[in-house]
């Protein structure tokens, strides 16, 4: 784990109202993540992985406790400030890719740069670089519907990485992929992690992903049951 802490979670509790009562999805979570980590939140379905990832991504707020990302307290951020944090520093990769269906590959990857207000020249260079990282420079005009699942996820990785964010949050990124595509995607992300020092945090229960993680935070019933560093001998 790197020394500089960019994510700090203290006594975090998240509950959702259900009927007359409430369901506690996360209970007393205390964690920190440093710059350049390749970490995963692992555990069975319903253990709270995605909820924790959403809070780190400022898409949701803690019910109690504190989550600080890049020095900003998530629970205290306004909608606008949360959007700014996501826009400037966070990248997202989703299980179902969530590419914009009417955009081409190029336009999908370009999208975060448009929101950042980059000029056309900067955008073009960054998009082509990102597509080169994921090996999709020959598909720039294709629409998502014309791509395979693996290619779609590579576009999603390029979109998350194009603005060179500090943190990339990946929610079950390989759940819809076969073994070969999963390994390709994970190798790409691991390479980007080591080259760009981007922090990757996964939410996964996929064994293939777990093999790549440098740190595994196990969640069970909304609590951290184990937090372990993994000795890496080689890829996969």
């Amino acid at each position: 784990m790197e020394n500089s802490k960019i994510i700090s979670i203290e006594g975090l509790i998240k509950w959702f109202p259900i009927g007359g009562g409430k369901f506690t999805a996360l209970n007393d979570i205390n964690l920190t993540f440093g710059k350049g980590e390749f970490a995963g939140l692992v555990g069975p379905s319903g253990s709270g992985k995605t909820t924790l990832l959403n809070i780190i991504g400022s898409l949701d707020a803690p019910s109690e406790g504190k989550a600080t990302v890049l020095g900003q307290s998530i629970g205290e951020l306004s909608h606008k400030k949360a959007a700014k944090l996501r826009n400037e520093h966070l990248g997202f990769i989703f299980q179902t890719y969530n590419l914009l269906p009417v955009y081409s590959v190029y336009e999908n990857v370009e999208f975060p740069l448009l929101l950042l207000g980059k000029n056309a020249e900067e955008r073009k260079k960054a998009v082509m670089d990102a597509l080169e990282w994921v090996g999709l420079t020959d598909k720039i005009k294709s629409r998502p519907a014309q791509l395979s699942g693996g290619e779609c996820q590579r576009v999603a990785v390029a979109r998350a990485m194009v603005k060179k964010p500090v943190i990339v949050l990946a929610d079950e990124p390989t759940a819809n992929l076969d073994a070969e595509n999963s390994h390709n995607i994970l190798q790409t992300m691991e390479k980007l992690n080591s080259e760009l020092k981007t922090t990757f945090i996964f939410a996964t229960h996929d064994e293939k992903v777990k093999k790549y993680l440098h740190r595994k935070v196990s969640l069970f019933d909304g609590k951290v049951s184990q937090d372990e560093l993994v000795e890496k001998v080689g890829n996969g």
């Binding site: 898409l59 909608h79 700014k84 996501r86 997202f92």
Partner: peptide
Amino acid sequence: QKEIGTDIALGMTRGQ
């Protein structure tokens, strides 16, 4: 709605 959620995740405000 997935697209809207993705737009927000990528840094758009609801107003945008």
